[in-house]
Design a protein around this nucleic acid. Structure first.
Lengths: 247, 247
DNA sequence: CAAGTTAGTGTTAAATTGACACTCTGAAAA
DNA sequence: TTTTCAGAGTGTCAATTTAACACTAACTTG
């Protein structure tokens, strides 16, 4: 590309891409969709869900629309975490064809804004049965090579999620409304990649007053049923002491 | 805007905007530049430094270029923190004129990627004497109304900086290479907005092994000269315990 | 040499952390 | 009906970390 490409209106395409995370006994999963224009026919070809933003739409709205089309749910937990704008990040022949098909100039690059979203298990099926596209839950440890720079975006999303989880309570966004402390602990273990002592975990979590026990127990399990808990926004205040807090 | 605006190539303009932070006895400052096209002549009109990205340039490079043009320094500490893409975020008459002047379609919106940068006091003058533009250090508590949505971007940058400072050691990016513990403490107090007990601060900081004393003391001060310290990357490892870490 | 200014230092009580092992409950299998 | 299986739930102690708190030391300036 030379200076002549600074022509009137040769602006980047702008898109949003979403890493949709879900969690169950199988671990942390991400929702991948089959690609529109796979350029190899052997094996499947995946990407993160995403779309070009519309002219009259802000970034959060665009991400929300993508998720709504995918899951039929309107207000998922959604967090913007980074923008990706390498001039070469969309470059394969088929992708250029795709740009033409949506009436965009294939000369123009694609800048994308990365979001991650957290989805509760009760909504898993909605996501996987997306009518718009074929979607599939894949364990984050078993993600294949993705289209574009989507592996990089996913890695970055995971880092952002990790930091978030270490910093503020968001875990329950990945759990059923009513959850057991065991579920919560497994979630932390999966995302942070550590083992946690059960008794110490419980002490610490219950010391934070915003995870409260319900008058209800687990049902249909072949062992002592566990107490159910839920997140209580009212009891939540943000006074967590981080590494560089003093007093 | 209606669907007709989904015309071929009517893509957003994409820019980067930088909140450049500096710190001295006067507190935390941000570098503002006088606006190209002030639309009111009474009083000054400011904005954050920024520019449209070039066709062949990635986002970090664009932010770096903006900073280099502003300060003549090449690799400042730089961190991307958010993207802003409200369709209405650039809308004043003069701004549209400006878009035309850089050969961009004024019908197209401007999506911007927000960066913040940390600059050491020894480089303050370079920044303020920018040959490209008139730049001015302004205390973050006394920032006037800015152009576009730059107040919002700045607020968001400050939040990102705060979280960063509470999470990993970056303070010395805002201090001279050799600094006193008092300077470091004031910086934390200014950014986090808290008062800190001197003795406890010192104990905690020196317990982290990466801030090491030099064989050198402060000079030319009218009181007991303080020990100088510097950051030691080698001794730095990332094992900080955050709020939701366990063990 | 007195006054002013910031540097530098230690102890104690309270809170938090990490390490660690056994009993309880209910369902399913025998 | 009894046994077995699987996970639930619980407490203590020693070590570490934290918060609160006040005085002396070192240097410059007047």
């Amino acid at each position: 590309m030379d200076q002549n490409h600074l022509a009137f209106n040769l602006n980047p395409n702008v898109s949003v891409d979403c890493a949709v995370f879900g969690f169950d006994k199988g671990g942390l999963k991400v929702l991948l969709i089959e690609r529109d224009n796979p350029d190899n026919t052997e094996g499947k070809n995946y990407q993160l869900p995403g779309d070009l933003i519309r002219n009259d739409e802000n970034l959060d709205d665009a991400a929300n629309r993508v998720l709504r089309e995918l899951t039929n749910i309107d207000k998922l937990f959604l967090e913007q975490f980074a923008a990706f704008g390498d001039p070469q990040r969309v470059k394969r022949e088929n992708d250029l064809e795709w740009l033409r098909s949506v009436r965009k100039d294939p000369e123009a690059r694609v800048v994308t804004i990365g979001y991650y979203s957290l989805i509760k298990p009760e909504n898993f099926k909605l996501a996987a049965n997306s009518f718009a596209r074929k979607a599939e839950w894949v364990n984050v440890k078993e993600v294949p090579e993705l289209a574009f720079d989507h592996n990089q975006i996913l890695t970055s999303a995971l880092e952002a999620l990790k930091l978030k989880m270490r910093t503020v309570p968001v875990g329950f966004e990945l759990l059923p409304k009513k959850f057991t402390l065991h579920q919560l602990q497994s979630l932390y273990e999966a995302v942070l990649g550590t083992e946690i002592d059960k008794r110490n975990f419980r002490r610490k979590i219950l010391g934070m007053k915003f995870i409260v026990p319900l008058d209800e127990k687990q049902k249909g399990v072949a062992h002592k049923p566990a107490q159910l808990f839920q997140f209580n926004k009212k009891n939540y205040n943000q006074n967590f002491s981080l590494a560089f807090d003093f007093q």
